[in-house]
Design a protein around this nucleic acid. Structure first.
Lengths: 110, 110
DNA sequence: TTTATTCATTGCAATATTACGATGAAGTTT
DNA sequence: AAACTTCATCGTAATATTGCAATGAATAAA
């Protein structure tokens, strides 16, 4: 095996898993943090920020893009990356719902 | 390869990645959701909730435990699982910081 | 003590991920 | 045009993940 059985779970569960998985690598966390830090789009220089080779970074960017967390648009011979507002907010919403629904139930066990 | 180069990233980045990765599978999302829903610890019956075989569920529980998201304590011949308060709150905090720091910078690009 | 029950572990097969060198595509610069 | 820059893609190797049948460990129930 090695293939996830997505069929048996809800769309919500699968989407949350996809987004979380996209963040599930330190390089991709670093990319997102950097995109937030510099405020605007990044047109280049992401590779210089990471301790990884260019093809590897490109692959991580592709995965973030597939998950919907970032967008990329071509600008001359550079590419412009930025966080995808919509997905990011949805991600925030779903996670916040989980977090708060846990905090509300102050279970006294264990 | 196939091994993540954790050495080159900060501890914070690695921990966030570890936690996100733990949530990066629909079965594990479902487990966490269920743990929140039933409020108290689960002593058994997690397997019945999931469309997966018992060893597979056991493995997912182990990964959630390794990441620190849940705790498990032995209770007779059942095992009692519940969400780890501390880790959960830290996870919440780190993600919330990311989310809000993004929202503050209403970048007008792309 | 024998039999269930509950969960973990082992072992295996299939697939996915991570990383990078080499190469390609497409624009820019000289 | 020729050389350069920037990024994607291909190919490949190493490792990780996913899933389950079989088995084991440990308590509970008969």
């Amino acid at each position: 095996m090695g293939a996830t059985k997505t069929d048996h779970f809800t769309d919500q569960q699968n989407e949350l898993a996809t987004l979380a998985k996209a963040l599930g690598h330190p390089a991709r966390v670093a990319i997102i943090e950097y995109l937030i830090k510099v405020d605007t789009c990044i047109c280049g220089d992401i590779v210089n920020e990471l301790p990884l080779a260019q093809p590897t970074v490109s692959q991580h960017l592709k995965e973030l893009k597939n998950a919907g967390l970032i967008k990329g648009s071509i600008d001359g011979n550079a590419v412009c990356y930025c966080i995808d507002d919509q997905t990011w907010k949805r991600f925030h919403g779903v996670l916040n719902a989980m977090f708060t629904s846990f905090l509300e139930k102050s279970s006294t066990c264990c």
